[in-house]
Amino acid sequence: MNSRTDRRAAGKSQGKAKGRPTTVADLRARLDRARAAGAGKDAEARARRMLAAYLDTAVAHGLSLQQAAGELARGQAAVRLGDVSRDALMQNPPRAVTEAACAEGCAFCCILQGGDGGTITEAEASRLHDALSPLAGQPDGRGWHPAACPALDPETRACRAYEARPTICRSFISTDAEACRVNAEGGAETGAGLLGSHLDYLAVHALSRDLLKGLARVPTYAMARIAQGAIDGEDRATTLDAARHKPRALEDACRDAAKAGGR
């Protein structure tokens, strides 16, 4: 029988023969062929540049393929690179930021019409569940409004998982709180939307999914279902299983964000 080293070397040779990456450098070489479905050419190009820098850094720090692929698949890379994009945007903040009407307790953006609450990554889903699970069984945002995010305190309307809130929550902004109230009641007022950096976050995750095809699953989750499961006392695994999106959801989220445009 071959030694473990021999078997590992044979596996790498077979992987290369099949065109499968065996190192982060191999994965980096694959990046130019990856696509971010639904994001549009400009967002895809930005995401590719960010992901290239991320993988180059991973190579420089000696990360294994397993480590890098895990960060991509769980969405840690998408969150970090989305934060980088947002920080760059804030160096010259748009009007939506300088004239933002958002304040603690407003919370009309946390009335989740449609029930999904937004697309989030596995890393975000796990973190949100862990932050909310100690509050299981307590009154929640649904006591204020039946469609409100369970993360809310029903009395103050403050988010009880503020530090663990996903990118979708960090990206939403409004210059008109009254417009948010009207929209929460089914209206269609202008003044609220997502920062442009949110599309970069989604595009990086979509690009990661295509990049890891055949290597790892890159899921997304419904934010509202994660919060609900945690508050209702479900364990994390059960909640993630119930909240996992169908593959098409990420493409749809990219397309919707691209159509809406940046603020």
Rank of each mutant, 00 (worst) to 15 (best):
A161C: 12
V182I: 13
G193F: 05
A103M: 11
A148E: 02
A188I: 02
G137C: 02
E163F: 12
Y221E: 00
D200V: 12
L132I: 07
P154D: 04
T220W: 08
R165Y: 06
L89W: 12
A222H: 13
A100L: 01
E155A: 11
E185T: 00
P166E: 02
V204H: 03
T175Q: 14
L199S: 07
K213I: 09
T167Q: 15
E178Y: 12
E122Q: 15
D200H: 12
Y221Q: 00
D130W: 01
L194V: 02
C110T: 04
A216I: 03
E189S: 11
A188K: 12
A188Q: 12
G105Y: 13
P94E: 11
F108R: 10
L211F: 07
A222N: 07
A125M: 06
M223T: 10
R86N: 12
L215S: 05
A188N: 14
P154Y: 08
V218D: 06
T220V: 12
I111C: 04
E104R: 06
H198V: 02
Q113F: 10
V218Y: 10
T98D: 09
G137M: 00
R217H: 12
P93K: 12
A177W: 01
H205N: 06
R217P: 00
D210Q: 15
V204F: 10
Q91R: 14
I173Q: 05
T121Y: 06
R165P: 08
Y162G: 05
H145P: 10
S208P: 14
T121H: 05
T119C: 04
A147Q: 15
A216Y: 04
G117F: 06
H129Y: 07
H145R: 15
L207M: 09
L215Q: 11
A136Y: 11
I111D: 00
A158F: 09
E104S: 04
A103Q: 15
P139Q: 02
A179L: 09
G191N: 13
A125V: 05
A101S: 15
E178R: 14
P150C: 02
N183Y: 10
A96F: 01
C159K: 05
E104I: 00
G214P: 15
C110L: 06
N183F: 10
A203E: 07
A179Y: 07
L212F: 09
L211R: 14
L211H: 10
C180E: 00
A164C: 06
E163T: 13
A88E: 09
F172N: 04
E122G: 09
H198Q: 12
S126A: 13
L128C: 02
L212I: 09
L211Y: 12
L207Q: 06
